[in-house]
Nucleic acid binder design. Sequence first.
DNA 1: AATAGTACTATGCAATACAAGGTACTGTTA
DNA 2: TAACAGTACCTTGTATTGCATAGTACTATT
Lengths: 107, 107
Amino acid sequence: MNLENTKAQMRKGVLEFCILSLLSGHEAYTSEILNTLKESKLLVVEGTIYPLLNRLKKDGLLTYRWEESTGGPPRKYYRITPLGQEFLEELRKTWKELQHAVEKTTT
Amino acid sequence: MNLENTKAQMRKGVLEFCILSLLSGHEAYTSEILNTLKESKLLVVEGTIYPLLNRLKKDGLLTYRWEESTGGPPRKYYRITPLGQEFLEELRKTWKELQHAVEKTTT
DNA sequence: AATAGTACTATGCAATACAAGGTACTGTTA
DNA sequence: TAACAGTACCTTGTATTGCATAGTACTATT
């Protein structure tokens, strides 16, 4: 039993909630998302976030547009769709329920 | 994106915390654990809990003893080890940190 | 031209919850 | 006594997702 591994397992399912929530505030490109998550102590790596963003896009929860950056490679700006917004509210409830269940079990 | 699947993903990593916590209160056999979790709205199935309990045992976090039951098949009573108790405290911290990180990201 | 910084992509792996199928023990019923 | 029901434990293959790793590509600097 390895604590780092357990942390990674705990992140499963949670990250899409966090990302949808971030993007419900304003659109952003990947590095911005990564940095914001990092500031909140949610460490996520590229191998995780790109496929995750793609999955969310594929399922219609996000859309994106390309924008040339000032002096670097082009960036992919993501934004949440109305469907994504609905799903986000479900996830918010789900997370609350899980917190409640864990609280009840561990105290 | 399927909400039921997301719920299952969110449970990953969390269940060992809940089970260790349950057993830190008193020893219990599997059905008791399942029922207690169910009361807290944490639905877990046999294919999950038996391998999980075995993993925790293998890693030295739990021990067990057999006890004949009153009129049914024998039961395996699990209890937490001192190592398990230590790990539990780490998990408690980890869960709190995750809650905090998610809170910060989603509000 | 080579290097550095930045951004995106793909893939194989590890881990775990779950579905499904099974074995085994005890008591009850036909 | 055999069949059935309730209960308890066990196993395994699958699906999913975070991660490590390896790469491509764009722009600016040296």
